[in-house]
Amino acid sequence: MSQRVFRVADHLQPSDGEPIRSVVHQTGDAVVVAWTVKPGQRIHPHVHPEGQDTWTVISGTGEYQVDASGQTVTISAGDIAIAPTGAVHGLLNTGAQDFVFVSVVCPELAGFEPL
């Protein structure tokens, strides 16, 4: 049987440059990615034209972009943010601590288009 339980902390790769996408697990059905976004860092707005991206926030606070005009909502530890197929999303860490989250993109080949 393949591994089914993963520790988020084992996959985090904090970076002083751009946040690093660290793949935890990948199949044709989905890709699970762990992220650390340091204070002041951002994940630039983008879309997945062929699939959904669901973020589960582990720690921190940030402004989650919800449309192409730049509108945001505040998300923080314990929140789940869902970007349906083709929906704009991105994040600016506005807090004082690392913003850590796990992203699940379904299907694996959902595509990626920066704005």
Rank of each mutant, 00 (worst) to 15 (best):
T94S: 11
E50V: 00
F112H: 14
H44E: 13
I58K: 12
E63D: 10
P39V: 06
G111S: 02
D16K: 13
W35H: 07
A77P: 12
V37G: 00
Q26A: 06
G40W: 01
S15A: 14
P14E: 15
E113G: 07
R21K: 15
A81Y: 11
V104P: 10
E108A: 09
L92A: 04
V102D: 03
S76W: 05
G17V: 13
E18S: 13
V88A: 07
V5M: 15
G90N: 00
T94R: 04
V5Q: 12
S22I: 14
D79N: 15
H46T: 09
D29G: 11
G111Y: 05
H46G: 11
W55Q: 12
V24T: 08
S76G: 15
V8T: 04
D29N: 09
L12N: 07
A30G: 00
A9P: 02
T61C: 04
I58A: 07
A87H: 09
R42C: 08
V57F: 06
D53W: 13
G28N: 05
T56H: 08
V24S: 10
Q71M: 10
L109I: 00
L109T: 02
H46I: 10
S76A: 14
Q52H: 14
G51Y: 07
R4H: 03
H89D: 04
N93L: 04
P45F: 03
E108G: 00
T36S: 11
T72F: 12
V23L: 09
V33Y: 10
F99Y: 03
S59V: 00
G95D: 03
D98Q: 01
W35C: 07
V32P: 05
S69A: 15
R7E: 05
T74K: 12
S22E: 12
S103G: 11
Q65I: 15
D29S: 06
G17Q: 12
D16M: 13
Q71C: 04
Q52D: 14
L115M: 14
Q41C: 08
Q41H: 05
V32E: 01
V23H: 00
H46W: 04
T74F: 06
P39M: 00
V24H: 06
P14S: 14
G90E: 02
G111K: 00
I75R: 01
V32W: 03
G70L: 06
G51W: 02
G78C: 09
T61D: 02
S2T: 09
G17Y: 13
G40C: 11
H46S: 11
I20Y: 12
Q52I: 14
T72I: 11
A9I: 09
A9K: 12
A110S: 15
N93I: 02
V57G: 00
P14D: 15
P107N: 07
